[in-house]
Simulated assay, not measured.
Amino acid sequence: MARKYSKKASADVERAMKKRKAGTLRSGRSGRKVKSRKQAIAIGLSEARAKGKKVPKKASKKRKASKKKAKKAKR
């Protein structure tokens, strides 16, 4: 089975994780310190994507459809 992410993309994620652990990783516009492991991974993948490395596209949001279904079920 083929790799989902390139090795260079994994290195970007690893670098972001190390920055988070050191307490120097900051998020986008607000510039707040990142504490979440998941958010650090997302930042690493986003940076890898911007550099043109092999990373799958972001998953599309399916939130609205599930909310509509929940509303219909309540009626």
Rank of each mutant, 00 (worst) to 15 (best):
G44C: 00
M1T: 07
S27C: 12
A2C: 05
K61P: 01
Y5G: 05
K38D: 02
A73P: 00
K61N: 13
R37S: 08
A50I: 08
R37E: 03
K61I: 09
E47R: 13
A22T: 14
E47I: 01
A50G: 09
K7N: 15
S46M: 04
M1D: 05
A59T: 12
Q39V: 02
A42W: 04
L45Y: 02
S66A: 12
K67L: 14
Y5H: 13
K58D: 10
I41M: 07
K53E: 13
K35N: 10
K35V: 06
S10W: 00
R63L: 11
R75P: 02
K72A: 15
A16R: 03
K61H: 11
M17E: 08
A22R: 15
S60Q: 13
A40N: 01
S10V: 13
K58E: 11
S46N: 14
K62L: 07
R75V: 11
K72P: 00
S66W: 04
R63V: 11
K51T: 09
K58V: 13
K69P: 02
E47M: 02
M1G: 08
K64N: 10
T24P: 04
K58W: 06
R75G: 07
Q39I: 00
A42G: 08
R26H: 09
S27T: 11
R32G: 01
A59P: 10
T24W: 08
G31V: 02
R32E: 06
Y5V: 13
K69C: 05
G28L: 12
P56Q: 06
R63Y: 10
V34I: 14
A16K: 01
R75Y: 01
A50R: 15
A2L: 06
R26S: 06
A2D: 10
S66P: 01
K61D: 14
K21N: 12
K57W: 07
R3K: 14
K57M: 10
R49W: 01
M1Y: 02
G52S: 08
R20H: 08
R3Y: 06
K58T: 12
K35Y: 04
G23M: 13
A2E: 11
K54H: 10
S66I: 13
K4H: 03
